[in-house]
Write a protein that binds this DNA or RNA. Structure first.
Lengths: 331, 331
DNA sequence: AATATTTTCGCAAAGGTTTGCAATATAGGA
DNA sequence: TCCTATATTGCAAACCTTTGCGAAAATATT
């Protein structure tokens, strides 16, 4: 069975020991140059690749990173994944991408899967339904670092990388104020999530401060459909709103549907401002003005944080990413 | 260190042998009921999970499925992944999701990664730039089954699961013919891909057959941007087209942008028909009529095919999935 | 009571790699 | 020639699980 490319086979063919082969391939100083050359040559032609499973078994160090997100088909997470993936590839890591489908049970199952696969670390964007992070804590104490990103828990005893959500809310408020709007409908997502609470708080407080006389109606829309019907209702009601603020792409999608259905034009008949990743806003004419939440930036920062954690063994830290306004024509 | 949950530790604590523990956990008939009970109980409280790496090393059977797609952030692949994932979870498999970013080099690197991780099988949707599948063939002969889906190679000596693209093209043609359209702009993607060629062939041939007098202008658009400018150009040209056919969501997106920009209304000023996964078409008003390509169905069929391959060891087969028209108001 | 049968369990090897330590070889020095 | 230092290499254990085969114990049969 000399066909499989293993250390053992290389050793046999070269009539040297397995350990010598192993060290030669790792450029260990103990090994003679000539031996190294021979080993490397044969390894090359045999297309040798170390068996990751055996390596793990011996070193207990897997080169796999877990990634758990509610849904990956979403521009934000996608750009996040893309940037993580790129960096991971450079460092020889593999990404184990798992989706929880916004279901805490699947989320937990995925967590278990990560543990089973002995991942080196896990990136987690929480489900909007997750309100108990005890499971995660258990994994953390078992020695696998967890980096929460985007949808993070309130708890401060963990590693978090997230957008500066309060600031984003404030920026939205400032934008609306600058345009002298009078009557705003603000649509927010699931109020259980800290991301929602922070954006809402930043937005509402700032807007009230800047424009004390403005009318602000806030509503909760946990789906595109809901956002659409809320928008339709508001747009058809007698007391006319002049602006809709959407805290996410999911909501923005519903609002666009409503506006299209009523054949309203932006920004004169209705102004729109959103927090978005940039795909949906470009679909309309004029394009929608939005505050960009960059998955790529979040990814980079998360990766940086990860290696900090891996190297220095920190166990709590909060990283905030700032973002900027992208001017469209909707306000 | 009796803290880690391994067979060895369980065995020590119970003063029995490792093999007995292993068999007890597997409900092997050789083991006494009482012993099984004790082992299971302890395993439970110790939260024992077999070490996947050790299992692989021994059995050479990994419970990981590779999945390589150009981009996962795309409704079609997403629903595909979702359905594969669900089924995989049921059977105790993990999905290793890899994106090639439409780059054949990364695609090859990912393939290598799958090999390195000794996956049980690989699902592949090819890059539009991939024209040599020799690398894949090598993997196949090395014993890892590959299931090509969606973007499949022309070669018939492999396993393919794909939409019935020629039929889809024909269905589109039939729909346009039924609406008595006279002047059609048909936008297709990368002509290197068999999916493009088949859709185009089915569409053009059928339409010419049904409506010999119709004017058909076909163009190639390999990006949303390109689709947009092609549509703008056509819509503003003197010889007025009455219908645009889009072979993909990517193209449809560009076309919608163009239509929005020119403030045209569907279906009277311009009719639109697309092949799509259903998200983009619902964004407009009226919504766009499309022929649905269901990632979920493709996923199910792929998974079925996989287990057929795994069980019966087939090495070539082509599965075709049919699809249907979803009526919107754009034609 | 002695033998045959069945039930229950343990031994040991294998899978591929890493690594501390021991062993051998070579060279330099006295 | 013998000893010490250095350069190379090999041995063997460990990581954790699975599994064929044999051993021991319990039970059944005569």
């Amino acid at each position: 069975m000399s066909n499989k490319a293993t250390l053992k086979n290389i050793a046999e063919m070269l009539q040297i020991s397995i350990s010598t082969v192993s060290r030669a391939l790792k450029d260990h100083p103990d090994i003679a140059k000539e031996t190294k050359r021979k080993v490397r040559e044969l390894a090359e032609v045999m297309d040798y690749e170390p068996n990751a499973f055996a390596v793990y078994l011996r070193t207990q160090q897997s080169k796999v990173l877990g990634l758990i997100v509610p849904e990956i088909s979403n521009f934000f997470y996608h750009s996040f994944v893309a940037s993580i993936e790129q960096e991971a590839r450079k460092r020889g890591y593999t990404l184990l991408i798992l989706q929880s489908g916004n279901n805490p049970e699947i989320e937990e199952a995925n967590l278990k899967l990560c543990k089973l696969n002995r991942v080196a670390a896990i990136f987690v964007a929480l489900t909007s339904e997750t309100n108990d992070i005890a499971v995660f804590k258990r994994i953390m104490v078992s020695g696998i670092p967890i980096i929460f990103f985007d949808k993070v828990p309130d708890d401060n005893q963990c590693i978090k990388v997230t957008m500066a959500d309060t600031d984003i809310g404030k920026l939205a408020a400032k934008t609306i104020h600058q345009h002298k709007k009078k009557n705003v409908l603000a649509l927010f997502g699931n109020p259980n999530m800290s991301i929602t609470r922070k954006r809402k708080q930043g937005f509402v407080n700032e807007l009230k401060k800047l424009s004390p006389l403005i009318e602000i109606a806030t509503s909760t829309a946990t789906s595109t459909k809901e956002a659409k019907s809320l928008a339709l209702e508001a747009l058809q009601s007698p007391k006319k709103i002049d602006t809709i603020f959407c805290m996410s792409d999911e909501i923005l999608t519903g609002v666009i549907m409503a506006i299209n259905q009523l054949h309203l034009s932006m920004p004169d008949q209705i102004a729109v401002l959103a927090i978005s990743n940039g795909f949906i806003p470009k679909l309309t004419n004029p394009s929608i003005t939005y505050i960009e939440t960059s998955g790529a930036m979040l990814g980079e920062k998360s990766m940086e944080t990860l290696f900090e954690v891996l190297d220095k063994g920190i166990s709590k830290k909060t990283e905030l990413i700032t973002s900027k306004l992208i001017q469209g024509g909707s306000i």
